[in-house]
């Protein structure tokens, strides 16, 4: 089976400035894949190169078995795309814009459009310029999903969506994935990626830092425990533990960063009289931060 997206050494330089460099990545069919990184890391550059809006300096992108350069038009027929910086024809109504884009695709999407608009509670008969940012984003999502594409490439899809619509969007993603269709979404919102994707890649300064299952990333992630004791405890006890990365003691509170299991820390803490323990969960944000700090010296 061909990978929906296969990147082989994909590189884009803008003159001397690195956009992305040597990206190797394989997306599996039917998965929801998260492409994580801070703003400016190269997420949109990667997407624009995959979609042939911009041309790679070297390397190749293969989408649904087709070459991103040579077969770009055929690829565009099979994908749905939501731009990160969504700009639309301001004078058109939502319905007109969706009609235009459907005509360009040569498909009748009226049923899908009606059903998606209802799910997202979107009034299609207002002009784009009159839409709130949330409604604009809904129009963007509808145009990405309306023709039931095999592959969805979504750049920061939940930008500006209110929580209820976000839930609806997550549900839509699950349906798409259950149908065997593939979603590649970029985000800088970590809890979101953690929640809705199966696997994720972390990109930073144009380079892929890691590609892993979400569960794996969580396991690698650092946890932070904030422990408050009735009377000051000895920080050296925690420093000696194998999984502990750092220890900071202020008054009666000791904060430790743990990579991996927190069990030894809790057991060690039990030797003292504990007033409170706050766990800052092992979310991707911590995983993320650890990838940042590891690489900082190299740059």
């Amino acid at each position: 089976m061909t990978a929906p997206i296969f990147l082989d050494g994909l590189t884009k330089f803008y003159g001397p400035i690195r956009g992305i460099e040597d990206l190797d990545l394989e997306i599996r069919q039917g998965e929801v894949f998260g492409f994580l990184g801070p703003n400016g890391a190269g997420k949109s550059t990667t997407i624009s190169t995959i979609l042939d809006f911009i041309r790679p300096t070297r390397g190749t992108a293969t989408v649904l078995g087709l070459d991103s350069r040579r077969d770009s038009v055929a690829i565009h027929g099979k994908i749905g795309y939501l731009p990160g910086e969504l700009a639309m024809y301001e004078k058109m109504t939502g319905r007109e814009l969706l009609g235009y884009l459907s005509a360009l695709r040569g498909v009748d999407t009226s049923r899908q459009v009606a059903s998606l608009a209802e799910r997202f509670d979107l009034d299609l008969d207002r002009r784009i310029r009159g839409y709130s940012s949330g409604n604009r984003q809904k129009v963007g999502l509808v145009q990405a999903f309306m023709h039931r594409p095999e592959l969805l490439i979504l750049d920061e899809p939940t930008n500006g969506l209110d929580p209820i619509v976000q839930q609806e969007f997550y549900a839509l993603l699950r349906e798409v994935s259950a149908e065997g269709r593939t979603v590649f979404l970029s985000s800088h919102i970590l809890p979101e990626v953690e929640r809705i994707t199966d696997r994720a890649a972390i990109i930073r300064r144009g380079r892929l830092m890691v590609v892993a299952e979400i569960e794996e990333l969580k396991r690698q992630a650092q946890h932070r425990l904030e422990m408050t004791f009735v009377s000051p405890a000895d920080p050296e006890v925690f420093r000696a533990l194998e999984t502990v990365r750092s220890v900071a003691a202020v008054d009666r509170t000791i904060t430790v960063t743990v990579a991996g299991s927190v069990d030894p820390v809790v057991k060690a803490a039990a030797a003292f009289e504990v007033e409170n323990i706050v766990s800052h969960d092992g979310d991707l944000e911590s995983a993320f931060l650890s990838y940042y700090s590891e690489d900082d010296d190299a740059e």
């Binding site: 624009s48 979609l51 042939d52 809006f53 038009v73 055929a74 565009h76 027929g77 994908i79 795309y81 731009p83 910086e85 700009a87 639309m88 024809y89 884009l101 360009l104 695709r105 040569g106 145009q143």
Partner: peptide, 13 residues
């Protein structure tokens, strides 16, 4: 106006 990508993302050469 940054709207070209909407058209280019459709199968329009």
């Amino acid at each position: 106006r940054r709207t070209m990508d909407l058209i280019l993302a459709t199968p329009t050469p």
